[in-house]
Write a protein that binds this DNA or RNA. Sequence first.
DNA 1: CGGCTGTGGTAATCCGAATTAGCAGCAGGC
DNA 2: GCCTGCTGCTAATTCGGATTACCACAGCCG
Lengths: 342, 342
Amino acid sequence: MPDKASTRLTQRDIARLAKVSQTTVSLVLNNRGDASARIPAETRDRVLKVIRETGYQADPLARRMTKQRNQILGVFTYESVFPSASGDFYHPFLAGIEDRAERLGWDLLLFTSAPVTEGRRRIFHENNRLRIADGCLLLGREIPSDELARLIAEDYPFVSVGRRDDAGGPVPYVGADYTAATRTVTERAQELGHRRIAFVGIGVGAESSADRLRGFRAAAGARAPHLPTTDRSPGELLDDLLERGITVALAEERADAIALYAVAAERGVDVPGDLSVVALGDSTRPVASDLDFSGFHVPRRAMGVRAVELLEALLSGTATERQLLLPCELTDGITLTPPEGA
Amino acid sequence: MPDKASTRLTQRDIARLAKVSQTTVSLVLNNRGDASARIPAETRDRVLKVIRETGYQADPLARRMTKQRNQILGVFTYESVFPSASGDFYHPFLAGIEDRAERLGWDLLLFTSAPVTEGRRRIFHENNRLRIADGCLLLGREIPSDELARLIAEDYPFVSVGRRDDAGGPVPYVGADYTAATRTVTERAQELGHRRIAFVGIGVGAESSADRLRGFRAAAGARAPHLPTTDRSPGELLDDLLERGITVALAEERADAIALYAVAAERGVDVPGDLSVVALGDSTRPVASDLDFSGFHVPRRAMGVRAVELLEALLSGTATERQLLLPCELTDGITLTPPEGA
DNA sequence: CGGCTGTGGTAATCCGAATTAGCAGCAGGC
DNA sequence: GCCTGCTGCTAATTCGGATTACCACAGCCG
């Protein structure tokens, strides 16, 4: 029968009702029958009976004051977690994170309170609440290195989802091996007989961009063409590609691959007949297309799962390797074929 | 310059460095320049300087021990928050919740740790952690009334997303007015000349099911046909409908409407020519269809937003009405037309 | 009977911050 | 010179539970 007391039940209340001390209640609850504290079955049962009757629940906050772990896994995203677009890039990561968190008995704390200043969210702001969580997972295309550096300097346990460059020290991460995947895809194009292959995308800034360009250059050479996408329409891009005699466009962004495909179809340019189009990963922008592009996918769900596991290892001190790259899933697809002349 | 101390900084550390007492640090941090505690600018600046230099952050949990609010909004779902299917029913709710939480400066705590016992998650389990949050939002098709009753009995601040029947007292909720929307849609069908209208779906159990059936009965009468969907294939359902001479099927589940439409097309039954099909809400199951069904949509995003607002009002004691029904968005669509004979 | 070892429990302290009560020191008034 | 009042700060206490140190008592031994 629940107490109708206005204030919540405490161990002190239980102690009074069971005619023991608060200490005893705590000992019973924590099953400490060892060494210094021995509770005979009779007393233990009496305490447990009162607990059952009152429906007492320990205050998790008070508990955390003395214990180390809080069983809360922080998740910091540099964009909204629940965007309106359903074809969400982050969704699979979070599904993996949730799955593993559930299995570990952790709750997920989404830091939605972080205010947006100067156009982006920042971890460290006036009233930073990182410490509520035992550790934190970081999601985002780009993460300012000063924030990473500070996390490292403060020795705060965190794992980045996605590879990050050193920031005043190595950053713990679980990333996708964009470099290897892009290199493999480029080599495959070469094996098919292609000689004019271009990288289409940003290629700088975020690690994920730079990694792909690096993989491309590793296979195609340092001077292989890189066509930036900024401020150019898919039409202009297509013109440029054809003018240069390119036969394979490696699109960093799946969305660009889709746009390129669409504008090509519009103009009667055959894909892959006249131009092969390869998607280097998954779309970070909401676009719908059920076209089976050649290229690769990012193991997003697995990355989420492994990131939680790595954080757990860091927290329990059992981590051996703090940086992990997962292979991307290569897809044959239908948009990469041998060049016309071959 | 961040301290490289192994343990986290506390107010005591700050106090020592600034050569004041822990009390003073707390007073400075809480801007208490009033009445009993006056801190001159000089001392205040000295303390603030140390805080800035060390990067001290107050432990939010310790704070919660003494303060009321923690700025954490709990979210309890009876299913996974991040399902693998992208066409997720809960997504819009959460988007609304996140949006409002962000604006209020709250963090979102997803109770993913709640273990699944006897096939479902339960709020109250061995190590219940509800109290980490200031209050909680509940999501799910069905919520056991004993859990609701206990929340009410314990006077824990919560809001259900979706209408709920009383459970030892009125349940605070922000729901969708399924009853009115279903009634309106049914009446619209009647105005078009339909006389044989059937309700297709569960119609019992969850409030959202019962509400729809009630709205249907209010317009179509107590004995209007109700065809359960459990253990029947869409084909069997269609046979039954046609056999009974039904001209409008009101599908509680959008997924059933889609399935019905598909099997009708397969068999050469014209929708809406031979049979009108109406969708009473949005799909709780992942199904893809861009068909513009007649019927209505659930204002999911708005419900999320309003639920956070209601919880805020409950917490600050400014709530006037604790139960709120939002109107559904009626859609004309193309699957409801006058019956053949009309 | 004094000393020793186990039992069975409790008082006291701590965690980190917030809050209350109150104390020194000094100025001004009479 | 004493009381009052203000300034500037701190000691002590609180929140709820975990932990440590220790105490009272019984039983047994020599």
